[in-house]
């Protein structure tokens, strides 16, 4: 499929607030995207990727993502399951990740339950963070990243601590099935504590994919390091980057999924 034929659905509701920068990311890469309010989302035909942006859907007063997830469940659950089964990529960033977990798409069927619990610090954390690519090749959102490569993607959340129902067993399953995508690390690339692990997440988990690799949920915001000038230290380091002038660390996520769609469909 040509890039110009691709269409991305950016699903939003009241309180979604990271949709504009997400759309900008796709637009810059030449891919058409549409904002779709969950109320108006009746079918997914014609879309090749679904993204659930960050924000505070419905205020997150209940539990992060709970209301958005239940709306999706009553409105379009079957269609979304089918969409995923057909291999189309689905991305949830921050609140979107919380929603994917809430719906059970992550870690996925037969995997036990996960939850995104309140940060250990007890407060919202908006800070530059580093993640290491842990995926061995399954995830369709990271094929442009080298193994163990470190990328800066800022976090901004109050509930991002991944906890698992049966930590030991589930962790080894996730590892074995290549479902771990990102871990929080420090500038030396080591698994470190706060603030490099901004929420106290188990085993420094920052992003997970499903068994098939086409659903990714992550707490850090790749759309907030799409451009180099979104990096906190660009004035020190200049705007030239390995990927080209003004290319930020998060851009590879979008490039990866676009490549995947164009190859697969």
């Amino acid at each position: 499929m040509k890039k110009s034929d691709m269409r991305v659905a950016i699903v939003r509701m009241e309180g979604t607030n990271c949709e504009q920068e997400l759309q900008d990311a796709f637009t810059v890469l030449g891919v058409d995207s549409k904002f779709v309010h969950i109320k108006q989302l009746k079918e997914l035909t014609g879309f090749h990727c679904v993204v659930i942006p960050g924000g505070f859907s419905a205020g997150d007063y209940v539990r992060a993502g709970a209301i958005f997830a239940s709306l999706i469940k009553t409105k379009i659950f079957k269609e979304l399951k089918e969409f995923i089964k057909e291999g189309y990529p689905v991305l949830g960033i921050c609140n979107g990740f919380q929603i994917l977990v809430e719906m059970g798409f992550l870690p996925g069927k037969g995997r036990g339950r996960a939850c995104l619990a309140p940060n250990d610090s007890g407060v919202y954390e908006c800070r530059p963070t580093l993640v290491r690519n842990e995926n061995r090749g399954k995830c369709v959102f990271t094929n442009k990243l080298k193994r163990k490569e470190i990328r800066m993607m800022p976090c901004a959340h109050a509930e991002g601590k991944i906890i698992l129902e049966e930590p030991k067993k589930m962790l080894s399953q996730l590892k074995a099935d290549d479902q771990i995508v990102f871990r929080w690390v420090d500038p030396d690339g080591k698994l470190a504590g706060y603030p490099w692990n901004p929420n106290g997440s188990l085993d420094n988990l920052a992003g997970l994919c499903n068994m098939e690799g086409n659903v990714l949920g992550l707490m850090p915001h790749p759309e907030r390091s799409f451009f180099r000038w979104q990096h906190v230290d660009w004035v020190r380091k200049g705007l030239s980057a390995p990927g080209g002038y003004n290319v930020g660390d998060g851009r590879a996520i979008f490039e990866s999924v676009i490549e995947c769609i164009s190859k697969k469909f």
Binding site: C18, Y124, E125, P128, M152, A156, W229
Partner: peptide
């Protein structure tokens, strides 16, 4: 400052906390 989302909309090019990564 870290409790305020100072980066939403992705347009904050000079941030309230500056400096080398890890040394705000």
């Amino acid at each position: 400052i870290r409790q305020y989302d100072h980066e939403v909309r992705g347009k904050t090019v000079i941030k309230p906390l500056q400096g080398k990564l890890g040394f705000p």
